[in-house]
């Protein structure tokens, strides 16, 4: 059995198995990853790093692709939704 990682998504504690993406962790806490230019909620579309709809802030760094980033223990993730 793989290890369990603990992350915080907008302050909410979530657990994911090792190897999961940050997107998978965020999905456990909220449905909206970011707000569009005109304030509409958005979430992953492509799952493969081309649409940029999954952008979140990870450990203070904004605009990181959640679908392309592997979850790590202790990550603090902020969505903009």
């Amino acid at each position: 059995m793989s290890a369990i990682l603990h992350l915080r998504i907008d302050g909410i504690a979530v657990e994911v198995p090792e190897g999961a993406s940050v997107a998978a962790a965020v999905a456990r806490a909220t449905r909206s990853f970011r707000q569009s230019r005109h304030g509409m909620p958005r979430a992953p579309l492509c799952g493969m790093g081309v649409c940029f709809e999954c952008r979140v802030a990870i450990d203070g760094e904004p605009h990181v692709l959640a679908c392309m980033t592997a979850a790590r223990e202790g990550m603090q993730v902020r969505t903009h939704g």
Binding site: A27, R31, S32, P41, R42, G47, C67
Partner: peptide, 29 residues
């Protein structure tokens, strides 16, 4: 990459690519 064609409501969270959701799910979504 996948071809997406716009239709009313396609920007709602929960609407994903077909390959897109598959990719997300393989990584724990």
């Amino acid at each position: 990459r996948e071809l997406f064609l716009p239709f009313p409501g396609w920007t709602l969270p929960g609407v994903t690519g077909a390959g897109g959701l598959q990719a997300l799910v393989k990584q724990g979504w």
